[in-house]
């Protein structure tokens, strides 16, 4: 390894940017950086921001960072946008909504492509978050792609998950019923200057009233992120949740659950890599043809492949 770790620990932002690229690329070198920096992580409050496409996640994330800066806290942001599963290319446009903090030396913002879509491998988001944490930010904000399974994935990495809702989109209530509300620690009604905001707040309250007794009910915060309104209340609600985690022992449980998730994830990746190293493309093609022709079932084919790595 080069002097990158040293420069990183001295607080050089370019070193942070370089380390993230290497970690993100999942190379052996990248893993060495995680090894070196992981002991320095574990201090930041990690906050996930999730919600439907167009719900204002990016704008809210930028406004949240501004509010933390007013309170003299430092902020690292990871914003994830989708990759094309075909070309692996991506357009990462979240910076557009975060211009107010673009030149703030207390904010570092990184756009990340989903990448995981190809080959089903989980992206290295947990590693990137650990690296940002190790850099010493008070808060690390993770903004999700905005649809599908990664929401639950984010809830696994973030200590506090914010779910962003909008008035006038009746579908949200349907989405909430489907279970996504379970991962929310704070509910935000963003674009609160649009008609219907109060109706949505009552609907959410009614929905939460159905939660089992004794279970923590997430607070509902109205925001208009484009105007910076409601952000003070949101920051307070996030702090309240952190205190709740500390007092209920949830923080310790969270750290263990992240550790477990990440460890098993990496184990899967190691095994997969071993199989790939021990297997030729021809052999895979042969098995694929047999499964496609129904001469073999996919379970038996997978076991044959796995036998390469696990004799």
């Amino acid at each position: 390894m080069d002097d990158l770790v040293e420069r990183f620990l001295a607080g050089e932002r370019r070193a942070l940017a370089r380390v993230i690229s290497r970690v993100e690329n999942g190379t052996t070198e990248g893993r060495d950086y995680v090894r070196a920096l992981f002991p320095h992580s574990g201090k930041a409050h990690i906050v996930g921001i999730t919600g439907g496409a167009g719900s204002g996640k990016s704008t809210l994330t930028g406004a949240l960072a501004s509010e933390y800066r007013r309170r003299e806290k430092t902020v690292g942001i990871v914003a994830v946008d989708p990759s094309s599963p075909f070309t692996r290319g991506a357009i990462l446009g979240d910076r557009i909504r975060m211009q107010d903090v673009a030149l703030d030396p207390g904010v570092y913002m990184r756009s990340m492509a989903g990448r995981g879509a190809l080959g089903g491998l989980a992206p290295s988001i947990a590693d990137v978050v650990a690296v940002m944490d190790a850099f010493g930010f008070d808060y690390v904000l993770i903004e999700t792609i905005g649809a599908g399974q990664d929401e639950v994935e984010i809830a696994g990495t973030a200590m506090t998950t914010i779910l962003v809702n909008n008035p006038g989109t009746g579908d949200d209530i349907q989405a909430l019923k489907a279970g996504i509300i379970e991962i929310a620690d704070v509910l935000v009604v963003n674009k609160a200057d649009h008609p219907g905001a109060d109706v949505l707040v009552s609907q959410l309250q009614a929905l939460l009233a159905l939660s089992p007794a004794g279970q923590r009910r997430p607070p509902i915060v109205k925001t208009t992120a484009t105007k910076g309104e409601g952000l003070e209340k949101l920051v307070d609600a996030i702090a309240d949740h952190y205190r709740f985690l500390e007092e209920s022992g949830g923080l310790e449980a969270h750290r263990k659950s992240v550790a477990r998730h990440q460890m098993l994830d990496i184990t899967r990746q190691i095994v997969l890599e071993r199989i790939q190293r021990a297997t030729s493309e021809d052999e895979i093609a042969r098995l694929v043809a047999q499964v496609a022709a129904r001469e073999m079932d996919p379970h038996s084919a997978a076991e044959l492949l796995a036998a390469h790595a696990l004799p």
């Binding site: 932002r13 940017a17 692996r88 290319g89 357009i91 910076r95 211009q99």
Partner: peptide
Amino acid sequence: RDGGCEVIYTGIRQTPEMIAEAALQED
């Protein structure tokens, strides 16, 4: 993007400082 790159687009009306800072942060 279609050529397989990850493209960071920052929008219009950027100052030289903002462009350089984005290049640094996004590596």
